[in-house]
Amino acid sequence: MIIKRFGTWALRSTTLALTLPLLGLGMSAPASAGTCTTQGCGGEVTNNSSMPIRITNCWSDSYGASEEGDKLGCVKSYNVNYWFAYNSDVELPAHDESKWHFYYYDTDAFRAYRGCVTKYHYWGAPTSTADRRGKASLWIKITNLDHVYIDSISC
């Protein structure tokens, strides 16, 4: 497990080191769905909860860091619950990882369900809580190479 984490960390660190000089040239990548075709090239979600979590492989810069609602505008109507296209969203099953699904190598957001409490953390960070009891669902953006772990969902 330590070797696996170090390998991922090393890959991400190398990618970041190679990307930083390009950012200075104004060549940053868009936040919307890309064509990431290699595991580890974008945001990842590991669902450690006992419930599925909805994830998407698209994001619009106009959303900011989060977006309320059950559906994102960037998801095409014919791509809801679809694993095989960009601009889609799906339910990531309990104990599954987005990195095992080609079109979700770069996962852009996950949804904290309305009426539920979702606990999650980014790799190496403390646990955060999205308490949506009495509120609408909330899509939370995953930035660049972040890895988000869904710890629990209770409704």
Rank of each mutant, 00 (worst) to 15 (best):
N87S: 15
Y63K: 04
Y63Q: 02
V75E: 00
E67K: 15
C74Q: 06
H95S: 12
A112R: 01
E91L: 11
V75W: 01
F110L: 08
A112N: 01
G73S: 13
F110T: 00
N57W: 02
D106I: 05
A65Q: 10
T107R: 00
S50E: 12
A85V: 12
I55H: 00
G73H: 09
V90A: 06
D96G: 08
Y82N: 14
P52V: 05
W83C: 06
L72T: 03
K71V: 15
P93N: 09
Y63T: 03
K71A: 13
S77Q: 10
E68L: 15
T107F: 01
S50V: 11
W100P: 07
C58T: 06
C74A: 05
Y78F: 14
T107S: 02
W83I: 05
G73N: 14
K99Y: 10
S98N: 05
D89L: 03
V75G: 00
V90H: 01
F110V: 02
T56C: 07
E67L: 11
S60G: 12
T107I: 05
K99D: 15
W100Q: 14
A94S: 11
V80N: 12
K99N: 13
F102H: 10
S66Y: 09
Y86A: 15
T56Q: 02
N79I: 01
R111H: 06
W83G: 01
H95K: 15
C58M: 02
M51Y: 13
K76Q: 10
S88G: 04
E91N: 15
S77F: 08
L92N: 01
E68Y: 10
I53M: 01
F84M: 13
A94V: 07
C58D: 03
A109K: 00
K71P: 06
S60P: 04
E68V: 14
N81L: 14
S62M: 10
Y105K: 03
N81Q: 11
K71W: 11
D96V: 13
N57I: 03
M51W: 13
C58S: 07
C58H: 00
A109T: 01
N57S: 04
R54F: 08
S62A: 11
C74Y: 04
F102Y: 09
Y113M: 13
G73V: 07
R111V: 04
R54V: 12
A109M: 02
Y103I: 00
A112E: 02
E97A: 12
E68P: 13
N87M: 14
L72V: 03
S77T: 15
N79D: 08
N87H: 09
